[in-house]
Amino acid sequence: MISRDLVGGLAAVVIGAVYLYFAYQLRVSALDDSLGPSGMPRIYGWLLLSLGLILTAQAVLSRLIGPPPAAGREALRGEWEGQGRRIAWAAGLLAIGAAYLFVVEKLGYLVSVALLILAAATFLGARFGTRLLAIAALGAVALWAIFALVLGVSMPSGLLGRLGV
């Protein structure tokens, strides 16, 4: 059975290995101290790698000596039930965010943030309609007022800026 700990352990091993690969490529210079820029990263990398292996071993062992794996398929389903759907929904929200990153410098902050609220609220289950449109518009204006007007952050102006608004 593939438990969550097994996945976590393997992920740690992979991250540790990739990090170590880059840690060993760090430049050496005459201004270095004895430990050097790569000293701590190497320690962290090896620690993560070994801890990942321990976690993997724990996961495998607990399966061997734990409750009988009779209901292998059942247990697997219990461990991961509904997770695929959750990941899909989360990925959807993340995609909306990624789209925002992509358009914010083209469309400008005000328009993009209104679209973001609209898209995210609809995606999360709000009913599409005039009420939602109004909320998105008002929310965007409120955020714009706080960040751009009051705090003076130079938010991307995009289209509106180019039109001279």
């Binding site: 929200l93 909306i96 973001l116 609220i117 998105a136 929310g139």
Partner: peptide
Amino acid sequence: RPYLNAFIFA
């Protein structure tokens, strides 16, 4: 919740 979370995201 949907409105709130969309707003937090923004």
